[in-house]
Design a protein around this nucleic acid. Structure first.
Ligand SMILES: [Zn+2]
Ligand SMILES: [Zn+2]
Ligand SMILES: [Zn+2]
Ligand SMILES: [Zn+2]
Lengths: 161, 161
DNA sequence: CGCTTCCTGTTATGTTATAACATACATAGT
DNA sequence: ACTATGTATGTTATAACATAACAGGAAGCG
């Protein structure tokens, strides 16, 4: 399990963006689904920062670029990205974030900084529920795991944004 | 950790309701907070079924009983219950559920049946994020753990509701 | 009584999400 | 060429969820 909690800690973000984009383009071809302009731009917008964006924030960006102005446009593009595993919905925030490892088989877990809004994705199994679920006879299909707290930078007041 | 995934499997629900109610009344007295009619009735409504209810569903019930008709009434009562640990918010459903173990020190995890809507509460630590978080230097304050799937009854088509 | 605190009532609005229908465009079969 | 089909987009309208802000009432206390 390549646990790579990207997001906190600096990194070459230009590369980070380029590789993610290249990977999803490749996956779309492989899967026979279309990476259309709206979908591509939506993904790029999500990739800009390692923070989650609300659908309406994404929509505002798309609108400014003439790619659509009505809610369904954004929700459809985001839905596509989520369905393909290229983005994730953060339930706690009612928002969306680009996947850190598109294509990789994953059941993601997230760490959300309540101060700076940075969201890091980590690998997770089905969490601590496996045992309880087995005991109760519950068949898990999907698990939401989202931790809220303080990222390394925001723990020290001096370096906090 | 008294893992008691109540909710699935039949039980004496009348007792289940009575003990929860008695416990929260006791806790309110102990903490010096008020269990007012609106709050009490809201809690009772949540207790009726082991499913999550939307704020507006709760409000409709309160309204029918003359206890309040405007959203803030329901949101305030639900907010009180959540703050006191008497109820939980299910992020995935934008809904609320009565706590299975009011007063107990807990970081709850939930199993949500996508067919019948039953929600069971189980005990959880901070989930599988502990390791990743420690590694990344992230300080967890609160964790959302919600599994969606099929409850025991809904796995066998014959017995499903 | 005057004051504070907590709870409730109400108005208005903000935010997030989807149903439903119409249009465009490509590709495949006839 | 022409029609059918599938997929994506455009648009309207509305549903569903949530809170800001202010007004009033009841309880406790100097
Ligand atoms: Zn990056
Ligand atoms: Zn931070
Ligand atoms: Zn019960
Ligand atoms: Zn079920």
């Amino acid at each position: 399990m390549s646990s790579d909690p990207l997001g906190f800690a600096p990194h070459d973000h230009t590369r980070c963006v380029q590789s993610a984009l290249a990977e999803v383009v490749r996956l779309c071809a492989e899967r026979g689904v279309q990476m259309t302009p709206v979908r591509r731009r939506t993904f790029e917008i999500l990739l800009e920062e390692h923070t989650a964006m609300g659908a309406y924030d994404v929509l505002a960006r798309l609108d400014a670029e003439g790619l659509g102005s009505k809610p369904p446009v954004a929700y459809r593009a985001l839905g596509f990205l989520v369905d393909q595993g290229f983005a994730h919905r953060i339930e706690r925030l009612n928002a969306f974030i680009a996947c850190a490892h598109p294509g990789a088989d994953h059941n993601p877990a997230f760490m959300i900084c309540r101060t700076c809004g940075t969201v890091a994705e980590a690998a997770a199994g089905h969490g601590p529920l496996g045992a309880s679920a087995a005991l109760a006879g519950f068949q898990i299909e999907q698990t939401v795991i989202e931790a809220e707290g303080l990222c390394p930078l925001c723990q020290t007041p001096e370096t906090a944004p």
